[in-house]
């Protein structure tokens, strides 16, 4: 195995890890606040890519405009979905939230599959991000590099917003004890809806980032989301930082597996999950439940 090939797989691994990180981060934030495992996270990721495609085809809006607009549109969709559907399940067993969002996934994917089949629609990267970049120790496709940087910024931004701002303090307090937080005069129901919107917006953003790499297709999210579930089980859902770190780490591990034992590359994350369950059932960053 040549050094270049190793590095190429590593680059792919890190950028895949970037998607795992962004998606598991959103899942963790939503789960923390709403006690809902958002199965629809993958479908919303797909929705983000399709909205970017529509913006381009219908309105002639480019990639960068989509990077801003799509999270807003998808986030608004999340807010509406929460108000219309998820809100009715507050306080019930979290399994119902999983089942409801599973139903949402089937509907969303089904609609897109009805119109687009399972084939992908290509979405090209903007000209400025085509080509390769020389990082000194390796040459990397510029777009992959951009994905890593953009997602690192977004992950850090989310972490900062949650851990270091006043709104973040509200979120953490409500995650820990929603009833008490509300009794201090904080409008927790609105906070919950916004959190779902934000978590979903994050997935929408990831969808736009993914559009030029994977072709835009109705099933791009659902296969990814199950891997992300495994990532979340490995990291433990209680920790923001844990979600980010395990997302990147597992992406890298997957990349290396592609080099050394390609047959196992799409199951390696699940194998790691099984090992973690045997050794540390609460997850690497999780508190015992």
């Amino acid at each position: 195995m040549s050094y270049q090939a190793l590095m190429a797989q590593l680059a792919i691994g890190v950028s895949n890890g970037a998607f795992y990180a962004m998606l598991s981060l959103g899942l963790a934030v939503i789960f923390g606040m709403l006690n809902v495992v958002n199965f629809a996270h993958g479908a919303v990721f797909m929705l983000g890519a399709f909205v970017a495609l529509f913006l381009k085809l219908q309105l002639g809006l480019g990639y960068y405009a989509s990077l801003i607009l799509v999270p807003i549109i998808v986030g608004a969709f999340g807010v509406l979905a929460d108000l219309a559907l998820l809100k009715r399940l507050r306080g019930l067993d979290p399994l119902y939230g999983l089942l409801l969002t599973f139903g949402m996934t089937l509907v969303l994917e089904g609609i897109f599959r009805y119109f687009y089949g399972s084939a992908g629609v290509p979405y090209s990267a903007p000209e400025g991000l085509v080509g390769a970049v020389d990082l000194g120790f390796m040459i990397m496709p510029l777009y992959r590099f951009w994905v890593i940087v953009a997602s690192a910024v977004v992950c850090f931004g989310t972490w900062y917003a949650i851990e270091r701002t006043r709104l973040g303090a509200y979120l953490r307090a409500a995650t820990e004890n929603a009833t008490l937080t509300q009794s201090f005069g904080i409008n927790v129901p609105v906070l919950l809806t916004l959190t779902y919107g934000l978590g979903v917006a994050l997935a929408g953003f990831a969808g736009v980032l993914a559009a030029p790499i994977y072709s835009v297709n109705p099933l791009m999210g659902s296969n990814l989301i199950i891997v992300v579930f495994a990532v979340v089980v490995i990291g433990g859902m209680g920790s923001i930082l844990g979600a980010i770190v395990s997302g990147f780490a597992l992406g890298i591990l997957e990349g290396f597996t592609k080099v050394f034992y390609p047959e196992a590359s799409n199951i390696v994350v699940f194998v790691v999950m099984a090992i973690v369950l045997l050794v540390k059932p609460a997850g690497l960053f999780g508190r015992a439940t």
Partner: peptide
């Protein structure tokens, strides 16, 4: 709140 610092607890409400 355990996930908040003393100051964040103070400034929460």
């Amino acid at each position: 709140f355990a996930t908040l610092s003393v100051r964040e607890n103070l400034l929460l409400p």
